[in-house]
Amino acid sequence: MAFLLICIVALIISAIGFYRYIWFISVGYGFSIAGIGVTMLVAFGIWGGLDPLTIVMSALLVVYGLRLGTYLIVRESRSASYRDVGQAAIEHGRTVALPLKVLTWIACAALYACEASPVLFRLSNHAPVDAVGIVGAAIMGTGIILESVADFTKNRFKRHHPDRFCDVGVFRIVRCPNYLGEVLTWTGVFVSGVTVLRGFWQWAAAIIGYVCIVWIMFGGARRLELRQERNYGQDPAYRHYSTHTPILIPLIPLYSVKNAKWLVG
């Protein structure tokens, strides 16, 4: 029942994608996660089951979603390059048939519910606060901070160096620190649930949500790599940067995913 409730919330909010198709997976994503967090706080505040850990984790979902959704809207309105990309996406969205839009809408809402489900299941199973849950919340918070810092760093850098790739601050650690922050956020959510998940369906929802978002983030890293190759591939400084800085995971010598065509993002 609780899982169905957050699915309905995600369906209602992500329906914004019928206005702009790309918003199913961008603005609708951020605000759906925020809406799920609010729903869990309100519903379990009424039903009972909230504790300090689940209050923090639900609130972190709200913070994460509001920050992401707002950031994406502001970026679309202020960045000329993203407006161009967005306009292309809008034009593509107009050609998508309604049945495919509906399928995308339902699939996205289900995915968003699955991503947040470990927190939901901790609540609905009335799980006690434990060390694993606290560690998961800490990882989640670290991911949100990293993603926020990465977005801020790149925006500030691009204002002064619009034609250069960003290689300062957290971009010295990995080339896609915002995607790393996203992976850490959802790793924290998944970890928080491993001691409280019960039965096949709870485990399936949690695993599907986590695996899909990590796959999507690697796909996003691949898309960014291909775009940067087109824009900066002839620059010796970029070639040195891209062959000496891991693309997504720190300390792991994975420098390119451009040939992994099975990745999407």
Rank of each mutant, 00 (worst) to 15 (best):
A10R: 07
A10S: 15
I16Y: 01
I16L: 13
F18C: 05
F24H: 10
I25P: 01
V27M: 08
Y29Q: 13
Y29W: 12
I33W: 02
V42I: 15
V42K: 10
V42G: 14
A43N: 14
F44R: 11
G49R: 08
Y64W: 15
Y64M: 14
Y71R: 15
V74I: 15
S77V: 08
S81P: 00
G86Y: 03
Q87Y: 02
A89Q: 12
I90A: 14
E91C: 03
L100H: 06
L100D: 05
L103T: 05
S117I: 03
V129W: 00
V129P: 03
A131P: 00
I134G: 04
G136K: 04
A137P: 05
A138W: 00
I144A: 13
E147K: 08
S148Y: 11
S148I: 02
D151T: 11
T153V: 11
N155W: 05
R156M: 06
K158Q: 12
H160C: 04
H161W: 00
C166G: 07
F171R: 02
L180V: 06
T185S: 15
T185H: 11
W186H: 14
G188P: 13
V189S: 13
V191Q: 09
S192F: 06
T195F: 05
R198G: 12
G199Q: 10
W201C: 05
Q202F: 04
W203Y: 09
G209K: 04
C212R: 05
I216A: 12
M217D: 11
G220V: 02
E225N: 03
E229P: 01
N231I: 00
P236L: 02
Y238L: 03
R239A: 11
T243H: 06
P246Y: 00
L248T: 07
L248D: 08
L248Y: 02
P250G: 09
P253Y: 01
P253L: 06
L254I: 14
L254D: 04
Y255K: 06
V257R: 07
A260N: 11
K261P: 06
K261Y: 12
